[in-house]
Design a binder for these strands. Structure first.
Lengths: 192, 192
DNA sequence: CACTTAAATTGACCACGGTCACTTTAATGA
DNA sequence: TCATTAAAGTGACCGTGGTCAATTTAAGTG
C-alpha cells in the first residue's frame, strides 16, 4: 500500500512554483534557469526534478495558469456577435500567447497539438477555449453548415497561423489583429 | 575589401551536410548529435558552428530540402479538383512533416511561423506551398469570395492543426487524412 | 619567394538541463 | 519509545549544444 504524500512535499512544490513565478516576474519566461529557481526556493536541483519531469512541465503549468485566468475573464464578457468581435474577444489571450517567442513555442509544443499522451495544463486550456467558443458560434449570426466544435477548432487553427506570422519580424500587433479578423471573416461568414 | 570564400570552406560545408545526412539515414532526425556529425565529417566541433549558427539551422536546411523535393513531385501531378483531392495531394508532404515529433517541432519553429527575421529553407517551402496551391484553387470549383492566397493560407493553417492532433497519442494516420479532409471541405466549399 | 593579412579551423572550455546512488526525514506499528 | 520502511531531498556528475582565443592555412603583394 502506497503511503500518502506528505505535507512537506506539497510545501516544497508550492515553494518551487512561487520561486519560479518570482524569477519570471523579475525577468522573462525564456530567461528562467532551473538553477535560479531552486536557489530561490532553497532546495537542491534534484528536488526540482523530483517534482517536475522536466523544465517544460513547469512552463506548461505556469503558462497554462496564465491562459486559464485570461479565459476566466473571457467568459464574463458579453458573447461576441460578429467575426470582428470574436477577434477582439480573443486578443487578450493571443497577446499573452505571443508575449515572448519562447512562450509561443512552449504553447505550440503543448497545445493539444504536440501534447504528450497525458493532457497538460496548456492542452486543457485549448479544450476550454473550444468549449467557450461553441456557444458564441451557435448563438451568433455565423455559418451553420458545420458543427460548432469544428468551427471553433478552425478559429484555433487560424489564431495559431496569425500568431505565427507575428514573429516574422516585419509584422506587429495590429497586423495580428487585422490578419485574424480577415481569416475569421472568411471562416465564419462565407459569402460563397 | 572582404576576400572571397575559399573552395576549402565550401568543401567542408558539403562534408558536414553529407555527414549529417548519413547520420540521419542511419538513425533519425531527433537522434542526430553534432558530435557525431563532426566526427563523421572529420572536422572539429567549432567548425560546425562556423558553418551553422546552431544545430537548428542544419535541421532547417535538411528538412527544408526534403520538403522541397516533395513539392517538386507535387507540381508534376494533376491539379486536384475537389477538397478531398487537395487533401490527397498534400498527404505526402504532411506524412513527412509528421514522420517524427521532433521534425514537426522543428518545422513549426521555422515555418514562416516562428521564422527568424531572415527567411530560411523551411519558411521558403511554406511560401512555395502557397504558390503551388493558388492555381489549384483558382481553377477548381472552390469558393471564390476570398482571394486565392488567403484560401491557401487557410489550408496551411488547417494542415498544421490536423498534424498537431496526430501527435495526441490516440490519433493515427487515417485520422490525419480524414480530419484534414473535413476541415478543407468546410473551408473550401462552404454551403453557408 | 618571403612576408603580410584575413579566412578557416581547432579543441579546451562553459552553460544548463537532467540523472541517480545516497542521505535525511517522517510516518507506521509493535 | 524505538525500530522499520518508504517518502522526500541532496548534490556530484553527465550529455550535449554552443563559445572563443589561439593556431593553421591559403590568398594577395612587393
Amino acid at each position: 500500500m502506497a503511503r500518502a504524500v506528505q505535507k512537506r512535499r506539497l510545501e516544497t512544490r508550492a515553494r518551487l512554483v512561487a520561486a519560479a513565478q518570482e524569477v519570471i516576474d523579475a525577468g522573462s519566461f525564456e530567461g528562467l534557469r532551473v538553477e535560479q529557481v531552486v536557489q530561490q526556493a532553497g532546495v537542491a536541483k534534484g528536488t526540482f526534478f523530483a517534482h517536475f519531469p522536466d523544465k517544460d512541465a513547469l512552463m506548461d503549468l505556469l503558462i497554462g495558469a496564465r491562459m486559464d485566468s485570461i479565459l476566466d475573464r473571457m467568459v464574463t464578457s458579453d458573447p461576441p456577435r460578429t467575426a470582428a468581435q470574436v477577434t477582439d474577444a480573443l486578443m487578450p489571450l493571443l497577446r499573452f500567447m505571443t508575449c515572448e517567442r519562447y512562450v509561443f513555442d512552449v504553447i505550440l509544443r503543448h497545445s493539444g497539438a504536440a501534447a504528450r499522451a497525458e493532457i497538460g495544463p496548456i492542452a486543457t486550456t485549448f479544450g476550454r477555449q473550444i468549449e467557450i467558443m461553441i456557444p458564441w458560434l451557435e448563438r451568433g449570426p455565423f455559418r451553420k453548415d458545420v458543427a460548432g466544435d469544428l468551427l471553433a477548432e478552425g478559429i484555433q487553427a487560424f489564431a495559431v497561423q496569425a500568431m505565427a506570422l507575428k514573429f516574422c519580424a516585419l509584422h506587429n500587433d495590429t497586423d495580428l489583429r487585422a490578419r485574424l479578423a480577415q481569416y475569421l471573416d472568411a471562416w465564419l461568414m462565407p459569402a460563397r
